[in-house]
Computed example of a mutant assay.
Amino acid sequence: MSIQEMTAKIRDGQGFIAALDQSGGSTPKALAQYGIKPNEYNGDQEMFDMIHAMRSRIMMSPAFTSDKVIGAILFEMTMDRDVNGKPTPQYLFQEKGIVPFLKIDKGLEDPQDGVKLMKPMPGLDDLLARAASLGVFGTKERSVIDAANPVGIKAVVAQQFEIGAQVIKAGLMPMLEPEVTISIADKAEAEAILRDEIMAQLDAMDDSKQVMLKLSLPTVPNFYKPLVDHPRVLKVVSLSGGYSREEANAKLALNTGMIASFSRALIQGLNAKQADIDFDAILGTATTEIHAASVAG
């Protein structure tokens, strides 16, 4: 697929984006959810081998198809490895017709002003160039909002758009992810500040540029509709944020124009010990349900 075809797939595609980008910190939890306990691997290398095997199994499954899954977010190690004998990004867009993205953030700073900013990303330009050479379409970068603190939220959004500009300069599409923690008491207030800060940044962008947004499911349905409709936004996607798949799907279906980009909610029910027929059936149910919620609006 060309860049133009990938852009059209994300803009117009009737489906969702699979988040297969668990990093070093979240990989043990993902493997535990998948039925692999910490005592079943020895060290990081074996751990990453096992998570790649899980991701490969998902991507190669007959249930993982472009009529429901329009994109997939990869961890750097996943991008650099092969699936079924091909570099992962090429397998996705050549064999599956699915648009590849790359997680580029290096984790989170310590909390300050009610937020966790992204850590520095040394060598980002080189990583972006390598991703582009492998056929990656876009990136994803995550920070976290834990309180309705205007100073902290302003800093999060400014950092997200600063990194986004660097990604655009490299010829890739940035997916900005200022996640609002779903359990905080002032979640709705944090969302209001966040929306205003994002709108201000979008309004200041050059007309020729666009970003994507990955946001927590809002407290009030369609609260982010002004962002969905903004001409500088290619697509708004939502994370499951700790909700079960059933809860996340129900909330997502109330938000017109938003699609899913789920991780834990996608692999819910999958297990390394399952026979392929059972694995594919459970994954098929997940993709069908998440797809339905994504197109409901």
Rank of each mutant, 00 (worst) to 15 (best):
M199W: 01
Q22E: 15
Q94H: 11
L172P: 08
A19R: 07
G15W: 11
P122D: 12
N222W: 02
N222A: 05
Y91M: 03
M50N: 05
G284K: 11
G15K: 08
I153N: 04
A129E: 14
P122G: 06
M212S: 01
P231Q: 14
F262R: 01
E191S: 12
S143M: 05
Q201E: 15
M77Y: 12
K169F: 10
Q4M: 06
K209F: 11
A260T: 03
T27W: 10
H230I: 07
S2G: 07
Q90I: 12
K235W: 11
L252V: 09
L194R: 06
R11V: 00
L117I: 01
P89L: 08
M54L: 13
S56R: 09
E179Y: 12
R232S: 13
F75P: 03
Q210M: 15
A292C: 08
K116L: 09
P226G: 05
D203R: 13
T219L: 04
L217S: 02
D113W: 07
A131V: 02
I58N: 05
A132P: 01
S133L: 01
S261P: 09
Q210T: 15
I58S: 06
E95G: 05
M212I: 00
K209M: 14
V151E: 04
R11P: 00
E191C: 12
L239E: 06
E289D: 15
